[in-house]
Nucleic acid binder design. Structure first.
Lengths: 342, 342
DNA sequence: CTGTTAGCGCATTCAA
DNA sequence: TTGAATGCGCTAACAG
């Protein structure tokens, strides 16, 4: 419970002014090597570490980044958060995290302001894009004091973002099925309010149309990302379109439910029904049968977002105007047994 | 990019002193209703929100809680984090989150100091207990300036903690199998360096011994929580102890791998092998077959941890000495088809 | 009930 | 290369 050591204590002990200690702390060049070394010794001897709070106040900017995200109990979002934290840690940033229970709720705005009140240096916005619920954010984007990077949202030219090419993912999955000769490829989509879900569906639709398929609506059922919804959706699909011979399920959790549903209806996978998922969660290789799926590297997405934030911060410090950067991460098809024609 | 509104701006605009504004902000009683109302109007008119940083500096304490955790890509830890965030949000706290990539690594100490440098009001330590790697923490525990609550670690009398009764969970799972007449109940454990893993194993062992079973070692294989390890462990177990007729797999991910392995070796579940998992991840109801498992309410655990932290903070403010609190959350057996004798 | 003074710990600006 | 003065935005302690 001993009182915290401050810069003054170090200064007194080292026989210099607080200012000199500050210079050493910030690796300023204008300190003699000798003084620097001495001060450093005193610092480690006293176990001093500077108050980030005082530093933030006097600089008007902290070493903390804000993160707004949601649904971290799912594999994807949690991986992105891990990527964000790792890169932030490498760059010396701490993280203040806000979780939205529901991407639509207006707490997003409140969360954002709380981050601002804490002087965060920048923000990573990793909440699923749904409709136009973020209009308020876009509106103030241009005269925002801090940089912000968006993850997995509909790209906008004037913003920095990192996103997975979900449309390509949908194409890869569907093309893989079409190439093997499957003729009636159904889809179990994510909640279509989500931009990501719509993009994956679009990929499926494009391949179908390029192959001259019509009458797609009967082959499409909407889920909500959960295994339970995948189960129900598969039952619906089998009933509505018994001729379906392959299904692209838009995430692995739903695919798990879908596999159980299909199996329970006497469809053996892949003999009587091919299935492809999306995400490549670690468990998907152990589904029965092992699941063909689309891998997206969300860890990289998170890391990249923080790197971009850092770039913008550096640019601003140098008075340059950090242009909006965009990164698009390509997904990759992982072929396992669930989709293979025997 | 307009300059931020400060308390002075509000004071000037309202024709009062900054101190009065401060009183209104903090809901102090000693302000006339009329002044209060007027100041509040000016505040919302100017869109003022106080700087948390300045507040933290002047009070020597922030409205931020620190969280140190790891492995949030797994269901359990991420649920706990969600619980922590929700309760923190309810109580008006922000969260600074540090993730350890590996519970053993020493970055834990660094992370802790970073939190201290940011003046966090308290810390939730939610890193899996492994060996004695946290000796340094325990040593300074007594004269720590801030309260700390531990999640899912070996209880200590002098610390506040919230933990799931993992041993009971192991007992419930094993007892359920024994009650149905299974005679050779194997176990696939988590990594035994983890306290939680050892506790679950202990529950299994106790029931076995109470039932007069010996020769347990041949029935026990260690995994690492992943589906891949569950797969391998099940193969090992079936080879080493072909007489095994039931298995307690210590988490659901491993159970998924184990199901696939057993199925691939011609064991039909549950007819030729009963399986019980642990966690009740949402997908487990959609395994093939649906998985009997032990549900642990990690959301509550997280919430409770923050509540305890809050209690300690209040106690300290009132000069009371906040006694260490302990909460033990009881797990619950969820019976599904994978364990039912037909 | 309200205002004044002072200081939290650090970094910026200017002077030496 | 170093130091002194000043202020970041807020609140505790005291005065009125």
């Amino acid at each position: 419970m001993a009182k915290e050591v401050t810069i003054k204590d170090v200064a007194r002990e080292a026989g210099v002014s607080p200012m000199t200690v500050s210079r050493v702390l910030n690796n300023r060049p204008d300190v003699s090597a000798k003084t620097r070394k001495h001060v450093q010794q005193v610092i480690s001897h006293l176990g001093y570490s500077p108050s980030e709070v005082a530093r933030s106040l006097s600089q008007g900017r902290s070493n903390t980044l804000g993160v707004v995200t949601s649904a971290i109990e799912y594999y994807g979002p949690s991986r992105a958060l891990v990527g964000i934290e790792r890169r932030a840690n490498e760059l010396g940033f701490s993280l203040m995290v806000k979780l939205l229970h529901n991407p639509l709720e207006s707490r997003g705005e409140q969360a954002f302001h709380e981050l601002m009140a804490n002087q965060v240096a920048g923000v990573v916005w990793a909440v699923a894009e749904m409709g136009s619920q973020r209009q308020w954010l876009y509106e103030q984007l241009s005269d925002l004091a801090i940089p912000i990077v968006f993850i997995n949202m509909a790209p906008r030219l004037d913003t920095s973002f990192v996103t997975v090419n979900n449309r390509l993912g949908g194409r890869l999955a569907t093309e893989h099925l079409a190439d093997q000769g499957y003729e009636h490829i159904g889809i179990i989509t994510g909640p279509l309010a989500w931009w990501e879900a719509r993009e994956r569906e679009l990929g499926w639709r494009e391949i179908q149309q390029e192959g001259g398929r019509n009458d797609l609506e009967v082959l499409k059922v909407e889920g909500d990302w959960t295994a339970a919804s995948g189960y129900r959706a598969m039952l619906t699909l089998l009933e509505r379109a018994p001729h379906v011979d392959a299904v692209f399920v838009c995430n692995d959790s739903m695919a798990q439910g879908a596999l159980q549903a299909a199996t329970s209806r006497g469809r053996s996978i892949p003999a009587n029904l091919a299935v492809v998922g999306f995400d490549d969660i670690p468990e998907s290789a152990y589904f029965i049968p092992p699941l063909t799926t689309v891998r997206q590297d969300l860890l990289s997405v998170g890391r990249q977002a923080v790197s971009q934030l850092h770039d913008q911060l550096v640019a601003r410090k140098n008075q340059e105007n950090g242009l909006a950067q965009a990164t698009i991460v390509e997904p990759q098809l992982i072929v396992r047994r669930s989709s293979l024609k025997e």
